[in-house]
Design a binder for these strands. Sequence first.
DNA 1: TAGACCACGCATGGTG
DNA 2: CACCATGCGTG
DNA 3: GTCTA
Length: 470
Amino acid sequence: MANEEIARIFYEIADLLDLEGVRFKPEAYRRAARTLEQLPSEVRTLKDPQAIRALPGIGEALSLKIEEYRETGKVPYLDRLREKWPPGLLEIMRLEGVGPKTTRRFHQELGIADLAGLKAALEAGQLDHLAGFKARKVELLRRALSQAGTVGLPSGGGRRIPLPEAQRMADELMAAFRASGVPVDRLVYAGSLRRRREDVGDLDLLATTRGDPRSVMEAFLHLPPVREVRLSGETKTTVVLDGGLQVDLRVVAPEAFGAAWQYFTGSKDHNIRLRTLAQQKGWKINEYGLSRGEERTAAPTEEAVYAAVGFPWIPPEIRENQGEFEAALEGASPGRSSLGTSGGSSTSMPPPPSGRGTSTPGSGRPGARSSGTWGSSSGPRTWPRARSGWRGSAGACRGWWEGSGSSSRWRPPSAAQRRGRGRSGPGPTCGSPGREGPGGPCPRPLARGSAGPGPICSSTPRMDPSRRRV
DNA sequence: TAGACCACGCATGGTG
DNA sequence: CACCATGCGTG
DNA sequence: GTCTA
């Protein structure tokens, strides 16, 4: 019995609980599901209940359910939930841009129970009478629906690609991006690719610039392989490539590079843990740096982020909240050693051989190496020294600086800028059919090969069916 | 056993 | 028009 | 739901 199986069950329970509007539980189930998925493949099948109970995010109740499933092949709790909701609702909820709230409204207010019903209601114009649903949203829904039919759930969406392939695509994309001549200072990849997961669901790129991030976004949107623009703002843009791969780009000021890279690399659970730990020390961490009250500390390096919370730099490969924090403390405190023990793995420890050096600290730019020796598989690794007392420039690291040197001027991303976005900005998503967004036409309108009467920018694979995140 | 449960960006629609 | 809340999404 | 104070 594969852990994946249980993970899927937990994901489904989470979705159903979401439908019910339950708070916190859904995330708890997903957290547990992610933990199960990440167990080292050699241990795909766990035997000792106690060991399971010790895994992060899995407590009394969930370990019992696991045990239950193992012995009876069933999880009654899930069955009960399933009885309460038409199965079609889950399909609806997986539509792009449609979440639990919207799904429940469809069901409760319009009696919609599945995709077919939704489509019918859409064509009958029933959605127009739904509060909060105006032309724009209806159009987006129409798009999502048309895609669900074609590329839909089965294999089209949610496909994860093997690391090597993802690496190639990232390299190519970054090269093309650079070649476009944008004024990006640093350009690196993050996410599960940087964590060297076996396969990745999307690409995460991070760039820094001292100039106007909008011009960076603009250039990105027009890269050749970009098929569709899902959303695009001043600091964050999401596109879909021709192959169906989603790529997220974030742009921050150089001063925030470390914080942003850390955040964007994840994993989610690692980030939450780190931020929670920071919280306990009175710090707040976000992708722009650290803050404590009015006090603000930028974070040009990842080290600075970890150091603020009292940790050495942690290699991306083990950032899964699977014991790396505990291990880091042991390694850092004189006297003890041995990682292992805690809960799961911490196995995949030794980073890839420095061979293609790109991966770890440098990610494509070895010069960015922010740490000492973490290579050579042998011996107790030397955790990079945590530099404490590091202080960055004051002021939030959001927005960007105009000009440079002492004359540089801080420009927060304000409403004024959004207004000014007028003709030159990226503009919202892809304009609705008939019109173009303020930012001009979508790159590659009418994607080639997009089956069906696709609205602009159509044909996009969907997320993983189980809504699992990278 | 009570209480907390990360932190944020973008798009949309509603309000004044 | 500016502003805010909401929903969905990212790690 | 889990976890911690």
